[in-house]
Design a protein around this nucleic acid. Sequence first.
DNA 1: CCAAAAGTGTTCTCAATACACCCATGT
DNA 2: ACATGGGTGTATTGAGAACACTTTTGG
Lengths: 252, 252
Amino acid sequence: MDVPLLTHPTTERCAPELVPNALLAVDVVLFTIRKAPLQEALQVLLVHQRDPSGQDRWMLPGVLVRPTETFAEGARRALAEKAGLDAATWYLEQLATFGEPSRDSRGRVASIAHLALVRSDDLTLRPGVDVRATEWCPVRRIGERVLAFDHAEMIRAGVQRIRNKVRYSWVAFQLLNERFTLPELRAVYAAILDPNLARLSSGNFKKAMRPLFDSGVLQVVGRAATGRRGRPGDLYRFVGPVTGTRERELPW
Amino acid sequence: MDVPLLTHPTTERCAPELVPNALLAVDVVLFTIRKAPLQEALQVLLVHQRDPSGQDRWMLPGVLVRPTETFAEGARRALAEKAGLDAATWYLEQLATFGEPSRDSRGRVASIAHLALVRSDDLTLRPGVDVRATEWCPVRRIGERVLAFDHAEMIRAGVQRIRNKVRYSWVAFQLLNERFTLPELRAVYAAILDPNLARLSSGNFKKAMRPLFDSGVLQVVGRAATGRRGRPGDLYRFVGPVTGTRERELPW
DNA sequence: CCAAAAGTGTTCTCAATACACCCATGT
DNA sequence: ACATGGGTGTATTGAGAACACTTTTGG
């Protein structure tokens, strides 16, 4: 709630300047799809940094929120400062807030975890000043990493969120280039939901995307370059709103 | 993030006690189903209180988070202190965090909005010390109320959350008594999702609940009392976990 | 006896899957 | 030529909706 617990009706009437009781932070769970076996294609950005105990640990990129910036601005700044990424136009949404009283030894810290998605992986990671290293870690291998704070929990929440969201919304396109083929799109769904999905026939997959064609948000824009074996796929472009949702949710 | 932005490596090595930069609060969107026309059966708890500008306004029950309590504990305390409700066993989950830099004139306040559900409405509301009045407001009528802060937005988020969640999880039972009839259960779904759902035949509704009977989480425990017109329905009991989810999500 | 409400069973429809077939490319 | 992978069409199955029918209560 937002009303002072000051039971003293002293400085009533207008803005009595309350005393801050906590630290606000943002952490970002940034996912991308990278060229790897389907099982490990979905990857998350980690940074190697000193944690409060003085140990070097893997953690999510994050910063303390400035007094005048929004959470979203803070999240994008975290990607810029920690990994040299310009996330100005990337998909970003709030995930959940983690604030167990004991989560940080230095005081009460509440961290607003965010989920971010980036198209393709042709990015150059540039570790920030206080960052020793940056890396893409396959989500399936997160268990092998020891993460600082409750960041493992944040990543779990992020995976759960994107697994749900990809089934009823259009966020999958945020993980693809401007122009893409249906097999590439299928690979995104397979990497996020279920590798077995790759075995689904291409015809049935296209039929599942039928509503998108009918509503015109998926448009043919050419033919894929010829380089791999077999017939090259058609190229498509997604022209719908980022926040759009499907009428019927996918059955997988 | 959780690492100090203190670029000075002064007090490095262990817990340098950071300076709080914000106020943490929790607000609760408490829903219940009350005896009213289906359109207005879903209602939310509001309290009448003085806001920072000195005006009396309707708002959600909320409190500032204490240094040693969790967000959930704070949320339950808000219901206790503002409306005299013992929410110790009620369903409660985090919704989202609202923290626009300008949302409170008194400083940077981040409020972690929570969603709570309570079975039935045989509760006695007891306004807290700084509360002028408490009331259940039909969600459909929220537009008529002028709410403090961004609490209208919080309620929108709460409605959206429960509309989604009721379709793939078992939270609907949190809005019913221990023993209930299928028509009562149908009324809950109709009140939350779509009043037209009440026209769905009882047979089809039971078929939609088929998986719950098969898995044994819905058990017959008797026959409803005879008082209304028509045949009384069977009484059921829900014995599944609160956090359980459906395999297949409801088609409505 | 009739109307109203709860519960049962059957039919119809439509969408998801499986599968057979056609097309384009590299070897 | 043929294997590989993309794309199109058709048949089959299974779940949801509509509806007819039985049961139990109050008027």
